[in-house]
Structure formats: C-alpha cells, structure tokens
Simulated scan of single mutants.
Amino acid sequence: MNCQDYQVVVYPGREREPRAALYRIVVIGSDALSLAWVLLRASEQSVIDFTRASDERDAALNALLERKLAGVRIDRLRFVIGLDSEYITYPIELDVHDYEARANPVRRSDSELPKATDDNRETHILTTDVIAGRTRVLTSDRQARALTDVERSALGV
C-alpha cells in the first residue's frame, strides 16, 4: 500500500471562484491489478458537503485527475468522500460528450462498453481508452455506497 498524507487541491467552485479541499491517494495492489483510491474531504475552512454538491465533487475530482493522475486509466480509479467518520464511494462515470469533443478514441463494436446513444447513433468506447486528464468525468449519487470494513481497513480510514 502506498499512501500520501492529505494535501490541498484547489478547484473551481460554482461561480468559478477558487475552492479548496483535502485529498490523498492510496494505491492498493500491484501491476495490472492495482487500484488508485482518491479520498476527498472538505477543508477545515470549507462549508461544502461533497455528498450533496455533485458539481463541486465533480470539479474537485476532475482537478485531481488532470493534475495528479493524468494518464491513469479511469477504470483503475476509485473515488471516496470522507465526511466526519463516514466514507462513501462514488462510481466514476465518463462524460461521453466531452470524451468525443476532445477527439479521444472511439471504436465501433457491439461488444464494447460503456456505450451511449446520441442522435440515433451508437458510440462504443473501450474502458482501457478512457484516461485521466483526457476527458471530464462525473460522479453518480444513485450507486454511491458506504465503504466496506475491508475497504476502510485497506485505506487506513
């Protein structure tokens, strides 16, 4: 396990004002099986509740992906919000429109996922092609869940 102490990330708020949060990155596993877990907490000066403010949560995550994890496959990342003693993990979802607008690789195959339907056409994207720093990502409340005891232990929280 490779841990960093909490550091400050500055990201744009709702009105493009500078906001700050605390983060750390924990890499668990080795080689092709490793996962990088991004843990985010509100700074002591912040009043943001990342569990309720998805736009702020997404802005902070995207800032970290661009600055600290550029080049890492998105499918090898996990995202966690810490709120007091509670830790919630959020799925990371691809912003397909941003992905295509940045001219990232798109493949045409019926077997590849994820896929999006837009204007009566299907776009298929290999998860191995989705790289941090090359596209915007979003987080989803609908599949958010509390960390398991095993995950908490592995992450040291």
Rank of each mutant, 00 (worst) to 15 (best):
A103M: 11
R102D: 02
E112T: 13
S30F: 14
Y6A: 05
L113S: 11
S30A: 14
D58K: 08
A36K: 15
L113G: 03
P18V: 06
G71S: 10
V96W: 11
F50R: 07
W37T: 13
D110C: 08
N104L: 01
Y11H: 12
W37L: 04
E56T: 06
K68D: 02
D95P: 06
A103Q: 14
S30D: 12
A42M: 05
I88R: 08
G29D: 05
R76D: 05
N62L: 03
P91W: 02
D118V: 15
L61D: 00
P114D: 03
R16K: 14
S111R: 15
D95K: 10
I74E: 05
A21P: 08
D49E: 04
R76F: 02
V38Q: 04
L94R: 09
A20Y: 07
A116M: 03
E112C: 11
V10G: 00
V80W: 05
A42G: 10
Y6H: 08
Y11S: 12
D58I: 08
T117S: 06
S111M: 12
D31T: 13
N104E: 01
I81G: 02
V26Y: 05
Y23M: 02
A59S: 12
L77R: 11
G71K: 11
L40R: 12
R107K: 14
R41V: 06
R107D: 04
H97K: 13
Y90F: 15
L83V: 04
Y90H: 09
R57A: 06
S85T: 11
S43G: 13
T117Q: 10
P114Y: 04
L69Q: 05
V9R: 01
L33Q: 12
A101N: 12
L61P: 02
S43F: 02
S85R: 14
R52F: 09
A42L: 02
K68S: 07
S46Q: 06
C3D: 06
D55R: 15
I74M: 13
I48N: 03
R16P: 01
R107H: 12
S43Q: 06
D95S: 09
V8C: 07
Y23K: 04
A21C: 13
P18R: 15
R108M: 10
R78F: 02
S85Q: 14
W37V: 14
D84Q: 11
R57V: 05
V9H: 01
I74Y: 04
R76P: 01
V26C: 11
A63R: 14
L40I: 09
V10L: 08
N62M: 06
L35F: 11
R78C: 06
V10T: 15
G29K: 10
V9G: 01
D55L: 13
A103E: 07
A103K: 15
L64P: 04
E44P: 07
D95Y: 03
P114E: 06
R78M: 07
L94S: 05
E100N: 12
A42D: 02
E100I: 15
A63L: 10
